[in-house]
């Protein structure tokens, strides 16, 4: 079998046909490459996160007990806003240059391609936010046991933010006032993730077990990742018509 120039991986000779997963993998690699070649965009999101979080002590006052108490909520809301700002990166550029239309014409299910884009998006938005969180937790004087719960909650929760956000971003493709509109559509749907995520950290702060919160958050992640790519794919098709 001659290797297909578009899909370098299709040279693999496998007994089962795995070709359906080649396009998603190519999309994943391409999106990662594109983001990493323009690291400024990625860094802007991260700095936004840091700046928003740093504003709170300035607005409220530097008392450590107070800061410790508001830290879970502040960190989570800032993460919410940062991932909201990153959403246009998902589809907007591909929509503008016509790539999205080509992807929609691919024989592979569009939801799978959207899922690949989501994975790439999470690796360049959610994962850096999660890794940055312990550093910011220091600013708020969080005890180390809480920091691990914070990291776990963000690791489980940021995929939800990206997946629900993808639906909003796809629905508002090419519309005027797209950014603000996406926020209005998506933020109410972020509330369960916020409640369980910030709640897990708060529970640990209060000396309780965070297991219940984290399990519910994990369940929500699985549920969202199952259905959101499908809805986002439908939304992409609507916006392309």
């Amino acid at each position: 079998m001659v290797s297909d120039p578009i899909y370098p991986l299709s040279a693999w000779e496998l007994p089962v046909n795995f070709n359906w997963c080649l396009t998603p993998i190519t999309v994943l690699r391409r999106d990662l490459l594109l983001t990493l070649r323009r690291p400024a965009e990625l860094m802007t999101t991260l700095f936004f996160f840091i700046i928003v979080v740093s504003l709170f002590p300035l607005g409220i006052g530097p008392q450590p007990e107070l800061l410790r108490e508001i830290a879970p909520g502040v960190l989570w809301v800032a993460a919410l806003l940062a991932s909201l700002l990153a959403l246009p990166r998902l589809f907007a550029a591909d929509h503008a240059d016509g790539t999205l239309e080509q992807l929609a014409l691919a024989p592979q299910p569009l939801s799978l391609i959207v899922f690949a884009k989501l994975v790439a998006h999470w690796l360049t938005t959610g994962l850096p936010l999660t890794l940055l969180a312990p550093l910011i937790a220091l600013q708020f004087d969080l005890p180390s046991s809480t920091v691990w719960v914070l990291v776990a909650s963000l690791a489980l929760g940021t995929p939800i933010l990206g997946a629900i956000g993808a639906v909003g971003a796809a629905l508002t493709l090419g519309l005027r006032g797209g950014g603000v509109l996406t926020a209005v559509l998506v933020l109410p749907l972020y509330i369960p993730a916020l409640i369980f995520g910030a709640g897990a950290v708060e529970a640990t702060l209060g000396g309780l077990d965070a297991g219940g919160h984290l399990s519910l958050l994990a369940a929500l992640t699985v549920f969202t990742l199952t259905f959101a790519p499908w809805a986002a794919a439908a939304a992409v098709r609507i916006s392309l018509d």
Binding site: V167, P188, P192, G199, L216
Partner: peptide, 25 residues
Amino acid sequence: DRAGAVLTLVGVVNIPIIYFSVQWW
């Protein structure tokens, strides 16, 4: 119509989750 339908359906799936999470909170 179609975009609104997707949004409404996503919303209605989320409503029980929102109610439950707010109750819990």
